[in-house]
Each structure stands twice: as structure tokens, then as C-alpha cells.
Design a binder for these strands. Structure first.
Lengths: 79, 79
DNA sequence: GAAAAAAACGAAGTTTAACTTCGTTATGCC
DNA sequence: GGCATAACGAAGTTAAACTTCGTTTTTTTC
């Protein structure tokens, strides 16, 4: 099984929206195409290591924040 | 600059040793060669996304644990 | 302190996942 | 409606991950 890409994609999208930027703006800042960002957010593939670092830098979060999600993706609906 | 691979490598080595297994044992369990593990631990390259997931599984830690290190990697040189 | 095991280290070649390009369709907002 | 944003597909390219083979160094252990 490979759920990590999916979870990572969702987390990236959430953090990107919190940062208030579009896929295109993120893509430009890290030197990727919009389609690649879209593919990553949709869980089609994960970023390579170098880009993982760039993403964190642009979003101004530590890399580990990009991997902060629950095992099983439950426990999400607390208000 | 690209310090992430170095930091990740050190963290991986620490966690592997905590788990009490050799590079070879880790390599076998995730389906890589010993040299690849060595290269990753030395920061020559990072694992691809799929293997990142496998590493975490074998070490029995959440992925984010592999990225838990201080920004700047200081505060390390106490004897 | 020798032998064995574990890991560092190099270089050159292979594989394949990440990434691109081009194009179409679907949503959401003004 | 019209514009921006993003989902979505497929086919091709690129480059980073990974391998292979071989040598050296460090660490462990007896």
C-alpha cells in the first residue's frame, strides 16, 4: 500500500491555502510547473527530496509539518 | 543550499541504531542495497517518496519523525 | 591486536519516478 | 457569461535515485 503520497498531497494543499497562494504561485517559487503541483497535491507522485526542501521553505514551515497527519487520516473533525 | 539530505541522513542513522539493526538489515527489509542506505545516511541523496514510506514502516515510526531535527542543527556539540 | 563485521567511499552505468508538455474538462468566483 | 483556478489524461523527457563492483577505513569482538 502507498497512502503517503495521498496524505502528503492533501497536507500540502491545506498548507498552501493557509499560505494564501495558488498552485501557480507555488510552482513558480519552487521552479516547477503548475501541473506538477497539481499532480503532487492529488497524490499521483511525491516531490523529490530537493523539492521537498524548497516547498517547506516557500511555505515557511519545517519539513516535518508537511508530514503531520494522523495514521489513518481519521480524527479530523474536532471543532 | 541543500542541508536537508544531510540532516535526514543523520536522523535516519540515529533511528536505525536505536532500532538496533545494521544498514544491511535495513536495506533488505526495504528492498534496497547496503550502498544506497549508506549513501542516504551520508546525505549523498534522499530516498524517493515510496522508500521514505517503507523506511518509516520498518523503523516503526511516523514519517514525520524522520524529519525531526532542529533548524540549523546546532545545540549538538556538548561533550 | 588480529580477525571479522560494519560502514565509508568512488566511479560509472542503469532504472524509473519525478517532471514536462500539450490539450481538454470541471469548479468556483466576480 | 467570462475569467481564474485546478482537475485530469496521456505520452514523452530528464535527472535523481539506485545499482554494481571494487577498495579503504572504522568499529566491534574475541
Amino acid at each position: 500500500m502507498g497512502k503517503l503520497k495521498i496524505q502528503f498531497g492533501k497536507r500540502l494543499q491545506a498548507l498552501r491555502r493557509e499560505a494564501g497562494i495558488t498552485q501557480e504561485q507555488l510552482a513558480d517559487k519552487i521552479g516547477l510547473t503548475v501541473e506538477s503541483i497539481s499532480n503532487i497535491e492529488r497524490g499521483l507522485f511525491g516531490p523529490k527530496f530537493e523539492n521537498l526542501e524548497k516547498i517547506a521553505t516557500v511555505l515557511k514551515v519545517p519539513v516535518k509539518t508537511l508530514f503531520e497527519f494522523e495514521r489513518g487520516e481519521s480524527g479530523k473533525s474536532q471543532s
